[in-house]
């Protein structure tokens, strides 16, 4: 069995086990490429039945416009229920990545927003598209990752995970985050998207787009909410994104890759790691580990 088939079969096994052990499951849908792969696998896992759970998008209101367009299209095509949650208190307080800093903004709009949505709906099993090759603390996270009643992750209290046996027992208030793509790499994701012809947000393909250069990173001017600093001048560059998040916090890379084939070639030849464009990963030492402990994916 070749390795795509193996990765696919493993992810499907994980998704089925999680569902068998859950009372009220949900799948996080971030609109990005990993989410797209995960959703595709979920459809395969239960076909011809539809996946027995809704999708959840934590909307910070700062996503790229093309992401919102893709979300709408995908929701219509999949026929699955899509729950969209925004931290209304954060929105009212006008929390944004420019004036409040990436760390505080992420905590309020993403982490708090996620916790609100999970508590409100009482979801006990939550699928996420994180991969172990993305970041050091993720390399040590279980496929079935337990969260205490406050959604907290304690890296020292993880359950041993042997063979393909996943313990889905929970005490009241506990929840499980399940990561079916744990053993996939960035290149696996691209190749699978290509082989399976899974539609993705056009931002992943290179195009002339307006950007400003900030701290050496290319930030796209996606709408007029981005404050242009003195001396900055939006300019058109041939850019694409390797990863998608909130537009003010997601840097683009200059690239001529306009097709899937070119992206795969570029990913293979690349010399920078994928999350380099994610500003929130390096805003403090060990920052992903800290965010995860607070309940971030």
């Amino acid at each position: 069995m070749n390795h795509y088939k193996q990765l696919e079969a493993e992810a499907i096994e994980i998704i089925r086990e999680a569902i068998a052990g859950s009372r009220k499951p949900v799948m996080m849908y971030s609109i990005g490429k990993d989410s797209s792969v995960m959703l595709h696998l979920a459809r395969k896992a239960f076909y011809p039945a539809p996946p027995p759970f809704p999708l959840l998008h934590i909307d910070t209101t700062w996503k790229f416009q093309e992401m919102y367009a893709h979300r709408k299209k995908m929701a219509e095509e999949s026929g699955m229920e899509l729950i969209i949650h925004t931290n209304q208190e954060g929105k009212k307080a006008g929390i944004n990545p420019f004036t409040h800093g990436s760390s505080y903004y992420t905590d309020v709009m993403k982490t708090q927003g996620l916790r609100q949505a999970l508590d409100h709906h009482g979801f006990d099993v939550v699928f996420g598209g994180a991969r172990r090759d993305e970041e050091k603390s993720r390399a040590k996270e279980r496929i079935f990752s337990f969260r205490s009643a406050g959604h907290r992750w304690d890296p020292k209290l993880q359950r041993p995970e042997l063979w393909n046996l996943y313990n889905t027992r929970m005490r009241p208030g506990e929840t499980i985050r399940v990561f079916p793509l744990s053993n996939w790499t960035e290149l696996d994701i691209w190749q699978y998207l290509h082989v399976e012809k899974i539609p993705i947000v056009p931002l992943y393909f290179a195009k002339q787009r307006p950007v400003v250069i900030r701290n050496g990173q290319l930030i796209m001017v996606d709408d007029n909410r981005i404050p242009i600093e003195p001396g900055e001048k939006p300019q058109m560059r041939m850019i694409r994104f390797r990863t998608l998040g909130c537009y003010p916090l997601t840097a683009a890379v200059e690239s001529p890759a306009t097709t899937m084939e070119e992206i795969i070639a570029e990913t293979f030849n690349t010399v920078s790691s994928e999350r380099q464009g994610r500003l929130i990963d390096s805003d403090q030492p060990g920052s992903m580990e800290k965010k995860k402990q607070e309940g971030y994916f």
């Binding site: 390795h3 172990r132 090759d133 050091k136 603390s137 390399a139 040590k140 890296p155 020292k156 993880q158 744990s182 053993n183 790499t185 030492p285 060990g286 580990e289």
Partner: peptide, 28 residues
């Protein structure tokens, strides 16, 4: 050594999974 506690203490606490590939095989 992925976790902050491990890096500070220079020890490995947990199981970590790494990925790499050659032209012949993928490795976990």
């Amino acid at each position: 050594d992925g976790l902050e506690a491990e890096r500070e203490q220079g020890i490995t606490i947990d199981v970590a999974y790494r990925f790499f590939a050659t032209e012949r095989r993928r490795y976990i």
